[in-house]
Amino acid sequence: MLGPRSQHHAGRLAARAHRLSGVLLAVFLPFHFLALGLALEGAERLDGFLAWSDQPLVKIAEWGLVTLLSVHLLAGLRVLALEFLPWRDARKSWITAGGVIAAATGLVFLASALA
């Protein structure tokens, strides 16, 4: 059958990472609001939540979220730059730079969480 084929390249993979990180962030957001809501309700319940969130597994999940957010933020900024800045050949270096910064952000978070 004739059909669309995928031809992967950096631009497409960046878009895919942007979408995936956006969707995963959307899944996480209710929990974030839960934490904020608990903070409003009182220190005791928040402390309970914070204690729960101090477990290693939760820390790892938080690391994932921080990384996701920086991936998504940088990919979003890249899209905005593509749309609004005059550019010609910077497409791929932006993707590389975004990937490096997002990974670095994740590592900094991990380092401070484990410290």
């Binding site: 031809q7 390249h9 631009g11 497409r12 960046a14 878009a15 899209v79 593509l82 749309e83 497409r91």
Partner: peptide, 10 residues
């Protein structure tokens, strides 16, 4: 256009 750049790639 969604700016993924497949045109430029190919």
């Amino acid at each position: 256009c969604h700016s993924h750049g497949s045109c430029t790639e190919h």
